[in-house]
Design a protein around this nucleic acid. Structure first.
Lengths: 125, 125
DNA sequence: CGTTTGTTATATCATATATATAACAGTAGT
DNA sequence: ACTACTGTTATATATATGATATAACAAACG
């Protein structure tokens, strides 16, 4: 599992871990049913504490990206919740686009970025 | 100045304040040259501490949304920095769209949201 | 002079983050 | 049965961040 953590970032390590895994799912590097490394294994690989990984797994479970099997450990399992996801996306976009709008970024600029990112994710599928 | 703070949010108050002001600029509720309320005044209005408002103003200044004039106080002043803003937007979109992509939100769904939000901002201009 | 501006300096408290040890119950393989 | 592994829980500690409080400062304005 390829995870890159920026220890100088102001974003929490567990939060970066969640983002990386979610982007990994979108990029089809991880698929439904794939087991995640054990909390101890991944912590050791990255060089962080076990509980930091455990917190990331717990958040991912609460947000519906992972299920926990006593036998196999943590397993990728994405629960589709389109309505909720749409609402959350809009809230996030409102702030991001406000910042962009202030800097004279156009609607077409944003559409182009969206297309680029979707292609990154879609092409991997 | 109409500011709404969610005290139950996990997002910091000063951060919410920044977001609200930036969205206010995008929505043309505040314009270049408009003075912001004094840190003491706004803190009193919202019911928070002076230093919390000061931190928000400081961040807004560092990010190029506000300039400080000894005489007039904090004044809206947006520095266009399109290149940098585009890079930051893409980073943010990468995570947001990954979450959306996992939930089967389509490219068209995102384009529609972007259009909606741009219309909110553009129409106010 | 008095008032207001942003700013700075301390200090305090609560919370969040990350680490460290340790232990537990359930599962798998030998 | 034993061993090794899984996530989970419980403590404890250290550090950083967020928010508050009180106080003071220089600059600007009337």
């Amino acid at each position: 599992m390829y995870i890159e953590i920026d220890f100088n970032s102001d974003e929490a390590i567990y939060s970066q871990l969640c983002d990386q895994i979610i982007m990994g799912i979108a990029a089809s590097r991880y698929h439904d049913g794939d087991p995640l490394p054990s909390v101890r294994q991944l912590a050791d690989d990255i060089g962080i504490n076990m509980h930091t990984v455990n917190k990331a797994y717990t958040v991912l479970r609460q947000q519906g990206y992972v299920k926990v099997d006593r036998r196999r450990g943590a397993v990728i399992s994405v629960e589709p919740d389109k309505a909720n996801a749409l609402a959350e996306l809009k809230e996030s976009l409102r702030v991001d686009i406000a910042r962009a709008f202030c800097r004279n970024i156009t609607k077409d600029d944003v559409h182009e970025l969206v297309d680029q990112i979707f292609d990154e994710y879609r092409s991997a599928k």
